[in-house]
Design a protein around this nucleic acid. Structure first.
Length: 220
DNA sequence: TAGTATCT
DNA sequence: ACAT
């Protein structure tokens, strides 16, 4: 993968835990391209309200692109589907820019061969949050998760392999990329209620893109 | 248990 | 603890 990630030198990668790497600002240099590309996806697959397995509303709104998508509306519960259960239409294809950036970022974090079949887009308005959970619906737990933050900063909660483990909180800002896999793959995590603010490109919103391998086997 | 309510 |  030779696609340039930067036009200048990036901040060094920071290890967060075993298998987890924080790439601070690594999506900021090309943020206009990230945002324009996501807007193209949202024009085809608008953000929708999401619901927990118990039928309770979540505060984030979601969209997807890729062969698969994480559906959290119109199902009993949630899970990966090939099409939007509400519209019946297949999820839009993952734009090449997103696919290649996710591959390159994963490789940079020590996960060569990552080839996502899902990009889940979570949009946080002020006050939106995400409770402590782990990403458990993917078939091959050897594949990492690549998370890209855009827009307003948030307080990300990073726990352990058990829900009851102590958590730490770290601020994720526009352009930050967090990659977790290996021993950290099943770590519980979440997002505290989004503080009010204004971002010059996204206004009073945070977008989080998570690239996953939901159904493909991972050969690192 | 990707959420909330309701206990201690 | 609930309800999925």
């Amino acid at each position: 993968m030779s696609l340039p990630l930067f036009d200048t030198e990036p901040q060094p990668a920071q290890p967060l835990a075993e298998g987890a790497v924080l790439l601070r600002g690594w999506a900021a240099r090309q943020d206009a391209a990230w945002i324009a590309t996501v807007r193209q996806v949202l024009a085809q697959q608008p953000l929708q309200a999401a619901f927990t397995a118990g039928g309770r509303p979540m505060s984030v709104r979601t969209s997807n692109c890729g062969e698969w998508g994480w559906a959290a509306a119109g199902l009993r519960g949630y899970g990966y589907t090939r099409s939007d259960p509400l519209s019946g239409r297949p999820w839009p294809a993952m734009p090449t820019f997103l696919q290649q950036q996710a591959q390159a970022l994963a490789a940079q974090a020590g996960y060569p061969g990552f080839d996502p079949d899902v990009c889940l887009i979570n949009a946080y308005a002020v006050g939106a949050r995400m409770g402590l959970h782990h990403d458990a619906d993917e078939r091959d737990k050897a594949a990492p998760i690549v998370s890209v933050s855009l827009g307003l900063p948030c307080h990300f909660v990073w726990g352990g392999l058990q829900r009851s483990d102590p958590v730490r909180s770290l601020r994720l800002e526009h352009g930050d990329v967090l990659v977790w896999g290996g021993a950290s793959r099943m770590v519980f995590h979440g997002v505290r209620p989004l503080p009010a603010g204004q971002h010059h490109l996204l206004g009073a919103e945070r977008w989080n893109l998570t690239f996953r391998m939901a159904q493909r086997p991972y050969r690192g």
